[in-house]
C-alpha cells in the first residue's frame, strides 16, 4: 500500500508541474482534466472515497468545461473585433 501511495504522490507532483508548464489554454484544459482524475485516484488510495467522488466529477469534468467555455467566449470576441 505504501508503495502505491508513494507512486501516486510522485505522479501527482509531476502532473501538477505538467499543468503549469502547458502554455496553450486549450491543451491545458485537457491536461487539467487528466490531473483531476489523478487526484481522484490519489484520494481513493489514501482511503477517502467521498473526496475522490467529488474530485473526479469536478476536477475532471466541470473545471475543464469551464476553461473551454471561457476560451470559446474569448475566441468569439476576438473574431468579432477582426472585420
Amino acid at each position: 500500500m505504501i508503495w502505491l501511495q508513494t507512486a501516486i504522490l510522485i505522479m501527482v507532483a509531476l502532473g501538477g508541474l505538467a499543468v503549469v508548464l502547458t502554455r496553450d489554454p486549450l491543451h491545458q484544459a485537457v491536461v487539467a482534466s487528466f490531473y483531476g482524475i489523478l487526484l481522484g485516484l490519489m484520494f481513493f488510495l489514501f482511503q477517502a472515497p467521498d473526496v475522490a467522488l467529488s474530485q473526479i466529477v469536478i476536477g475532471a469534468l466541470a473545471l475543464p468545461l469551464m476553461i473551454l467555455l471561457a476560451l470559446a467566449r474569448i475566441r468569439r470576441k476576438r473574431e468579432r473585433s477582426v472585420p
Partner: peptide, 17 residues
Amino acid sequence: TPGGGFQGGVILASAPL
C-alpha cells in the same frame, strides 16, 4: 455508503451536460 449530497449533486448535474 461513501457519497452524500455534494457528490451526488455533481453527478446529477452532469446529466444536462
